[in-house]
Computed example of a mutant assay.
Amino acid sequence: MPEQTPHVDETAAPGLDTALADLAGSGTLLVALDFDGTLAPFADDPGQVGALPGSWAAVLTLQRAARTEVVLVSGRPLDSLARVSHAPDDMSLVGSHGVEWRVDGHDEAALTDDERARVARIGAALDAVGERFPGVVIEHKPAGHGVHTRRVSAEVAAQANAAASQAAHDADPQVLERGGKDIVEFAVRHVTKGDAIARLRELRRADSVLFAGDDVTDEDAFRVLGAGDVGVKVGPGDTVAGYRVADPAALTDVLKQLARLRATR
């Protein structure tokens, strides 16, 4: 029986089939992907997530295709991203929204002494908030901290987020606050995924870019995409992306289709 060709649901993402075909024919292609909520469904324990098998198989196929590079671009710390993704050593990773890099000779993670001191002050203030709200998890990252509220009610989450915001800004008036799905993050470097995508495009001299992401922080990346690029929003929520799919499982079909087209060009 002949193998069936993956097909994107045009009802959910009209025109995406054509956009992927055009993208597959480009010269140098950068495929940049968020991880949590995009390649991997969410889990209460962030350490226990994993990419959907079909999506990961397509990612590895794309990674092997000529003139194609896959980069995972995540809000996770770099070591956490490497651990949960099981990415091969030759796959580029960008963590902490663009602060940390594992990209061919462009590794970056070091903070200044002043930045490290700021991170420590903010972390201590947020730890005190976490003690007041059982179920709220404070995640410490190299350039900031995340306040996770997935395990608590909406009412408790709102209270905890307000308290965390007050505490973080009292500890460091210059802190960058950004919200996401069941998380509010407080960082000392004003770097976005949009900055990361723009820099990756330049480093790799990419002719076209595919970026897929699900969260508010991914909108920065969608905004830097240009003509000939493809942005895919995963799940609900306002977006400037050109296309949308329902969930990570639906993105699997998108990645399979692009991998097939790119591998046979």
Rank of each mutant, 00 (worst) to 15 (best):
D247K: 10
R223C: 10
L126G: 06
R189N: 10
E69T: 14
D107H: 15
P77N: 08
T192V: 06
L261W: 13
V175I: 07
L20F: 10
D229Y: 14
L39R: 03
A43H: 04
T5S: 15
F42T: 04
Q159N: 06
H86P: 02
A87F: 04
T11K: 14
D238F: 07
H106K: 07
A168Q: 04
V156I: 15
A196E: 02
K181V: 02
D207Q: 14
D247P: 08
G15R: 10
L258W: 05
L126S: 10
D45I: 06
R151H: 10
S80E: 12
V175S: 01
V230Q: 10
L210E: 04
L200R: 11
I183S: 01
V59P: 07
G235P: 03
T239F: 09
P236A: 14
T28E: 01
P88H: 00
V147F: 03
T112V: 12
P236Q: 14
A109Y: 04
V73F: 05
V99I: 15
L93R: 05
E131Y: 10
T61R: 15
G237V: 09
A32H: 02
L29H: 00
G15Q: 07
R121E: 08
A51P: 06
R260K: 14
K141P: 08
D44N: 15
G27C: 02
G37R: 05
A246V: 02
D89E: 12
H7N: 15
S96I: 04
D214E: 03
P53V: 06
D253I: 06
G144T: 04
G25H: 05
A263H: 13
G237S: 11
G47W: 00
G194N: 09
G179A: 12
L210M: 10
P248K: 08
L200F: 11
I138K: 05
V224H: 04
T149S: 11
D79L: 11
E185C: 06
A171V: 05
P53D: 15
D113F: 03
R118L: 07
V8E: 07
L20V: 09
L16D: 11
V156L: 14
L126T: 13
V129K: 03
L111H: 13
P248A: 07
R150A: 06
A110I: 13
R265M: 08
G228P: 00
V94W: 05
V191M: 10
A164T: 04
A227P: 09
L255F: 13
S85P: 10
V59F: 11
S85C: 10
